[in-house]
């Protein structure tokens, strides 16, 4: 059973400090190509051209939140079925249930440990890509 490689990650996160440390972890430590978007609109504008393998999506953002951002990204052909992982502190049971309803692969709870982020994402991806083949 083969596995699809994970190479390109679209990070949608409005906090510059979290953007920085997450980019370091994913890009420098994980070797992924990362596109950072500070808002829903930036993500919508970038998604088609960047064509991510995976979307890491914050939930609580000013303006359009992560839930609505995902709905908008699903209307773009290039990201209509792109796997999504939510990155959020909102992890009450009803929140997680909602994320699952929206088809997210997983939820990574904030605060997360930067040194383990790549391993966490790799584990989620390996499980997903193994099931997808």
């Amino acid at each position: 059973m083969g596995s699809r490689p994970l190479k390109r990650i679209l990070l949608v996160e409005d906090d510059p400090d979290i953007q920085t440390v997450t980019s370091l972890a994913l890009g420098s430590f994980g070797g992924y190509t990362v596109e950072v978007c500070s808002s829903a609109q930036q993500a919508i504008d970038s998604a088609a051209a960047f064509a991510p393998d995976l979307i890491l999506l914050d939930v609580m953002m000013p303006g359009m939140d992560g839930i609505h951002t995902l709905e908008a990204l699903r209307r773009i052909p290039e990201t209509s079925v792109t796997p999504v992982i939510f990155l959020t502190a909102r992890v009450q049971p009803h929140d997680v249930a909602r994320y699952k309803e929206l088809g997210s692969l997983a939820v990574i709870r904030k605060p997360f440990e930067p040194t383990t982020l790549v391993e966490t994402i790799d584990g989620i991806w390996n499980e997903y890509s193994g099931q997808a083949d």
């Binding site: 992982i85 992890v91 997680v96 997983a106 939820v107 990574i108 709870r109 440990e113 040194t115 383990t116 982020l117 790549v118 391993e119 966490t120 994402i121 584990g123 989620i124």
Partner: peptide, 8 residues
């Protein structure tokens, strides 16, 4: 929900 071990 995902979790990982310390890999520092």
């Amino acid at each position: 929900m995902a979790s990982g071990t310390n890999t520092v």
